[in-house]
Amino acid sequence: MKNVKMIALICGAIFALGFPLVVHTSYYIHILFMVYLFAALGVGWNLIGGYGAQLSLGHSIFFAIGAYVPVLLMLNFHISPLIGGIAGIGLALLAAALIGLPCFRLRGPYFALATIAAGEITRTLLLHFQGVTGGANGLPIPFHGDDALNLQFSTKAPYYYLALTLLVVVFLLVRYLEKEKVGLYLAAIREDQDAAESLGVKTMHIKLLAFMLSAAIAAAGGQIYAFTVAYIDPDGVASINLSIEIATVVIVGGIGRLWGPVLGAAVVILLTELTNIYLGAMRSGASLGMYGLLLIIVILLRPDGLISLFDRFDPELNKKGSK
């Protein structure tokens, strides 16, 4: 069993690393880019939404911060997005703390509602302060030739590798945390907050920590997205739909499972792209409708996500935490 897993992993790695070298169609590269991006966002969201079961529907806030901050710094002050990105992540961490502190006193649907409201406030503000953000028109990033310092590349491949790197880093981080104190504490919070408190778990601290980490990951994803697409607007990077899409990727794959978001992103992104190809040409709304449909189907038929289909082949996977 272990060998099969190892071989699959190596094949996957070769495929991921070699893909842009073999395939040069930028559309296909872009699809895989989106898979990695959403997988990374999902793995990050899973930290708080899955392991900690705090259903955040406001992750677009951090994605938007991660997108807007480096773009604005570059356009207005010619600051390299490598530095601007750090500023964006810093601001996302701060925003997560400010939002989490009051919101985590709420439980269940109240928490989800509060994060939706926070997300909508962010979007409304981005639309309102047109002077800075360009409002609904958004901000295009003009291309001034290949320039790694400004994250400007004439081909899709470098962005592809950026997203892949983000995914690998985030995945390894969460894989490590899952087995550590934070992971166990989050599981305790997911199961029973009062009981966790009674065992000395400072639930507020742990939830904040997971939320902030998760926000930082979303911000990093936002930055990579912004420079890849070279255009950002409030409806694209700060809408509730984005927050729902991130959550959907995780639910479809398997909530609270390490590989869940990765599988989820692959399935969801590929399915929506197919829908776009076959239906999108006729009508808009096809791909988002697909998200909704997938969410409904998975919740009704497989609330544990598609990853649970593999459990029967791998009993080890089921015995989380066992040796």
Partner: peptide, 17 residues
């Protein structure tokens, strides 16, 4: 929450289509 959220975006986009 997730079921009704799914329903919400599904209805919205089905009508859009």
């Amino acid at each position: 929450i997730l079921l009704t959220l799914g329903l919400s975006i599904f209805l919205q986009n089905a009508i859009l289509m």
